Amino acid sequence: MSLDTVVEDIRDEAHARAEDIRAEGEARAEEIESAAETDAEEILESAETEVDREIEQLREQRLSSAKLEAKQKRLEARRDVLGEVRESVEDELVGLEGDSREDLTRDLLEAASVEFEAGDDVSVYGRPGDEALLESILADYDGYEYAGEYDCLGGVVVESAQSRVRVNNTFDSVLEDVWEDNLQAISNRLFEQ
């Protein structure tokens, strides 16, 4: 074989080998490109799913937050209405006059008097402005005496040093008990639940 033939064979073989390497490289490049496209599609799909999930979660959080805020505003409004009703009741109690005020005050004093022994010196306190009323009522009770003002809507605070008892039978204390005992019913009636 001549050198030219050998060179030609080597050249042909090198071309064939180069062609094989190029074909393998292109095939490998296509595989890599295809795998990269598949990965990119999966990443994109995963990102879209994650974004959709985050959007839904954010929507749920905002909806929940809005519902909670609305509920708090309703409760605030109800508290305000209940406060106004209570203030109205207190105003009515302060405004009681004549026989109604006297009858209630007598009933409260009578209820308190069962706590004291006969012969006790009993001090009775009342709302500023009820002094004359209390003194006229106390005329019917032996050992009972008007002792001064007590900051309240009306009624009496009664105490005795001998028995070391103090009874708060003010309109305020009665209202507080009635209010607490009936708050749910009042609320239900006002807000028709």
Rank of each mutant, 00 (worst) to 15 (best):
S2I: 10
D4C: 06
V7Q: 05
E8C: 09
I10Y: 04
D12E: 11
H15F: 07
H15S: 11
A16D: 05
E19D: 09
E19L: 10
E24V: 09
G25R: 13
G25T: 15
E26W: 07
R28E: 11
E30S: 02
I32V: 15
S34L: 12
S34Q: 13
T38R: 01
D39P: 02
A40E: 03
E41M: 11
I43V: 12
L44F: 02
E45S: 13
A47C: 03
E48H: 01
E48Q: 04
E48N: 02
E50Y: 11
D52E: 15
E54T: 15
E54G: 09
I55H: 03
L58G: 12
R59Q: 11
R62N: 00
S65M: 06
S65F: 05
K67C: 03
L68C: 05
L68K: 02
E69Y: 08
A70P: 06
K71G: 02
K71P: 03
K71M: 03
E76A: 09
E76W: 01
A77T: 01
L82M: 00
E84V: 00
E92P: 02
E92L: 08
L93P: 02
G95M: 06
L96Y: 01
L96R: 02
D99Q: 12
R101E: 08
E102K: 15
E102M: 11
L104R: 15
T105V: 11
T105I: 12
D107V: 13
E110P: 04
E110R: 15
S113W: 06
E115W: 07
E115S: 14
F116Y: 01
E117Q: 11
A118E: 14
G119I: 02
D120G: 08
D121G: 04
V122N: 03
V124D: 06
R127Q: 09
P128E: 10
D130H: 02
L133G: 01
L133N: 01
L134I: 12
E135F: 03
A139L: 03
D140H: 08
D142R: 05
G148A: 10
D151K: 15
D151S: 13
C152Q: 13
C152T: 15
G155D: 01
V157M: 10
V158Y: 00
S163I: 05
R166T: 15
V167N: 01
N168C: 04
N168D: 00
T170R: 14
T170Y: 09
S173C: 05
V174L: 13
L175G: 04
E176A: 12
D177R: 08
E180L: 03
L183G: 06
Q184E: 14
Q184R: 14
A185D: 01
N188P: 07
F191L: 09
E192L: 11
E192N: 14
